[in-house]
Computed example of a mutant assay.
Amino acid sequence: MSLDLPSPLADYVEANARLDVDGMLKPFQHDAVVIDNGKRFEGRPAIRQLLEDEVIPVKAIFMPDSVRQEGGAVVVEGPAHGQFPGSPLRFIYRFRLTSGAIETLEITV
């Protein structure tokens, strides 16, 4: 299924499929915030650490299968596959964009 994702989100998803940390970081603003399962990561250095510690080692690849607009956010849902317990797990990614870049991303199960 091909989704019509805004450019920064499509870039993030494509880089994630390659497990490319630099590519995943590129669509984020320098002071972006990621909230992953209640933990807050502020700025690209903290987001890089999150990706290097929790995404790359388990080869977690997010495969979005739905997208919708909700309250000013772009909500993308789908499974993530990888080498982690319970794989695949279904995730909800709630993105807020500003000036063509990801300002915030909240990830929930």
Score class of each variant (00 low, 15 high):
Leu3Pro: 15
Leu5Phe: 13
Pro8Lys: 10
Leu9Lys: 11
Leu9Gly: 08
Leu9Asp: 03
Ala10Glu: 12
Asp11Ala: 13
Asp11Met: 05
Asp11Val: 07
Tyr12Pro: 14
Val13Gln: 13
Ala17Met: 05
Ala17Phe: 05
Arg18Met: 03
Arg18Ala: 05
Asp20Val: 10
Val21Trp: 06
Asp22Gln: 09
Gly23Gln: 03
Gly23Thr: 12
Met24Cys: 06
Lys26Ile: 03
Phe28Gly: 05
Phe28Met: 00
Gln29Ser: 11
His30Phe: 01
Ala32Gln: 00
Ala32Pro: 07
Val34Gln: 00
Ile35Glu: 06
Ile35Phe: 01
Asn37Leu: 15
Arg40Lys: 15
Arg40Phe: 08
Arg40Leu: 11
Phe41Ser: 08
Glu42Lys: 14
Glu42Tyr: 04
Glu42Val: 15
Gly43Ile: 05
Pro45Ser: 01
Leu51Lys: 06
Glu52Leu: 02
Glu52Phe: 08
Asp53Trp: 11
Asp53Phe: 10
Asp53Gln: 15
Val55Trp: 05
Val55Met: 02
Val55Leu: 06
Ile56Ser: 00
Pro57Ser: 02
Pro57Asp: 00
Val58Cys: 01
Val58Lys: 00
Lys59Ala: 08
Ala60Gln: 08
Ala60Ser: 08
Ile61Thr: 14
Phe62Cys: 13
Phe62Asn: 09
Asp65Leu: 00
Ser66Gln: 07
Arg68Lys: 14
Glu70Leu: 11
Gly71Ala: 08
Gly71Leu: 04
Gly72Pro: 15
Ala73Lys: 14
Ala73Tyr: 08
Val75Ala: 04
Val75Leu: 07
Val76Cys: 04
Glu77Asn: 10
Glu77Tyr: 06
Gly78Glu: 04
Gly78Arg: 02
His81Ile: 15
Phe84Tyr: 13
Pro85Leu: 11
Pro85Lys: 13
Gly86Asp: 12
Gly86Pro: 15
Pro88Ser: 04
Pro88Phe: 08
Leu89Ile: 14
Leu89His: 11
Leu89Gln: 09
Leu89Tyr: 12
Leu89Pro: 09
Leu89Asp: 03
Arg90Gly: 01
Phe91Ala: 02
Arg94Lys: 14
Ser99Asp: 14
Gly100Pro: 13
Ala101Arg: 15
Ile102Met: 07
Ile102Ser: 04
Ile102Val: 15
Glu103Gly: 06
Thr104Cys: 01
Leu105Trp: 05
Ile107Gln: 01
Ile107Phe: 04
Ile107Arg: 07
Ile107Met: 12
Thr108Cys: 01
Thr108Ser: 09
